[in-house]
Design a protein around this nucleic acid. Structure first.
Lengths: 330, 330
DNA sequence: TTGTATGCGTTATCAG
DNA sequence: CTGATAACGCATACAA
């Protein structure tokens, strides 16, 4: 492939001049510029980004790490990230970790290897120490999922409050035996959502009963399986709050298989408001996360860090909204 | 950040020696190797990939271009690509084009700029000329969607046959007024699936009627909207074949809104077999694409091209399967 | 086994 | 306005 010196030779100028017309860094006479441009076109020359980035120590690329590309929740966030990135001259590289620490490390190596100027982490498997260390080497922002107490910027909703409101809604419908399907992981959001669940129960004078709690992995299957177990209890719950829409949909299908009617026999509330949740029948009551805005904000924060506007960590909490649909209708 | 010469200095060796222990390219005495490794650890040195890749003219990275990260169909393919890539020492960078030619071009620039060794294209917006030219500069493979007649390798199912079988299944259930919801785009698969639809009708002695055909963009919304129109026809269709599961689900919801029962009043068949199609009620009859295998095969083919095993284009057709579920039950 | 020196393709500094 | 040249960080051919 053609290099900058091929172009220089063909246009009968120095490589410096070619570089100048390429980057518009300083004035070049119109005639030489034209000659250079013509040579570029003829040779179909494209600058080698490895050379350029090496020299500039800047890639104008952002790494976005997400745990599961199959979860539509992340897709919407990514759109926000991309839009802001593109507006600011950055490209984004999506990397799927599959929640596998090894895969994540491999991608982090790209980041440390200067292939990207910074990263947005959706749900990292790294330890707090690893995260802290990484943040000292390279700009990072946590999006949605985050560790508390770290000096690393993050963007999320108020998970405790969101869960509290969702469960409160169920309480308001008259439910007393409200089950909880959470997530078996180390993420803060999981703990916070459970906290919100417990607080709503407590305020309503309902005793928290761990028997009514199950823990999955956000997937449809886990929601299905856990609901089956919860429905085996006596007395069985009359409502369930799930920390993901996919688990909520699994719970609904599980209950349907037992010939329960939704919401009459079981009220179901999800979390996220993925677009499937309004396609599904019955449509799903859920906590809507502002996914697109979460992505936009995370990217804006990251750009500020990269471009040195920000020092120290900033924490952003965006507004959520409880969307009431058929699965908890009166 | 520490560079290779920092390490060399600290370990009291030359950069060449550091490079050697890094890459195991030739023998280094155990004692010096130890010293070097210790220095690397102490400095937390990570090789700069820009420098390395520039020197090696090899990135061990693959670009994967997909039109829409929100479509779960692609998620499964990506998993196949990733698994094979990882097994062979490659990382993958996912880039979302949003079916926007400009965004796609931007990502292609990374490819041409030596940031990746090759690419898998899921549904490119490039012209045949652009594709052909690109394929001369850099290894690429088309996955699922492809252009015919190009000397560019591709992996897909037999779309015409798959559609034929799906429509044949509807014919076998006694349907005569079978609608078609296709895609309004320039993709070959769209044309082929329509061809299969027409062939099945023809063999059954049913006249093809363009009035029974609508064209969307694979999305739930477009399926919903088009089905509404088709149901306004008199006589209305008794079955519909959709070229994506999301459109099929949209069609079902549309019919439900008109108080039609599925499959009694309207039989619905989708395409792809995304995991959501079995969660939805009624469960969806659909053409299952071997998504994971499509991804694996595409990546294997690409590696062969990159590593020079293959010359010329190869075309792979993987097996599909018609999955019969509730939406077309007797 | 190890070190020296060169070049990968680019940008930026400094002269002219 | 333009050119020569020194880096950027690394890997490798060649010497020692």
């Amino acid at each position: 492939m053609a290099t900058i010196s091929d172009v220089a030779q063909k246009a009968d100028v120095s490589v410096a001049t070619v570089s100048r017309v390429l980057n518009g860094s300083s004035r070049v006479s119109p005639e030489t510029a034209l000659r250079v441009r013509r040579a570029i076109a003829e040779l179909d020359y494209r600058p080698n980004l490895l050379g350029r980035n090496l020299r500039r120590t800047k890639s104008e690329r952002i790494l976005v790490l997400l745990p599961n590309i199959a979860n539509p929740f992340y897709a919407e966030i990514v759109k926000g990230i991309e839009d802001v990135a593109n507006r600011n001259g950055y490209s984004i590289m999506l990397c799927n970790t599959d929640s596998d620490p090894e895969r994540e490390k491999k991608h982090i190596r790209m980041l440390k290897g200067y292939l990207a100027d910074g990263a947005i982490l959706m749900a990292s498997e790294m330890t707090c120490e690893e995260l802290t260390e990484l943040s000292r080497e390279v700009p990072i922002v946590q999006c949605c999922e985050y560790r508390a107490g770290l000096t690393i910027s993050h963007v999320s909703i108020d998970n405790e409050m969101a869960a509290y409101q969702a469960v409160n809604h169920l309480v308001g419908l008259g439910h007393r035996r409200i089950a909880f399907i959470g997530a078996r992981n180390h993420f803060l959001s999981s703990a916070l959502r459970k906290d919100g669940y417990i607080r709503a129960l407590k305020e309503a004078g309902i005793a928290f009963d761990p028997v009514y709690c199950g823990y999955g992995d956000y997937s449809y299957k886990s929601g299905f399986r856990i609901m089956k177990q919860l429905l085996g209890l006596n007395p069985r719950p009359t409502a369930v709050f799930c920390v993901s829409d996919l688990m909520a949909i699994g719970a609904i299908r599980s209950a349907m298989e037992e010939n329960l009617r939704i919401p009459r026999d079981l009220a179901v509330c999800g979390f996220d408001n993925i677009y499937f949740s309004s396609m599904f029948k019955p449509t799903l009551t859920t906590v809507s996360q502002p996914m697109y805005d979460l992505g936009c904000t995370a990217m804006e924060v990251l750009i500020n860090i990269i471009e040195g506007q920000t020092k120290g960590a900033a924490h952003y909490f965006l507004d959520h909204e409880l969307i009431i649909r058929e699965s908890t209708a009166k």
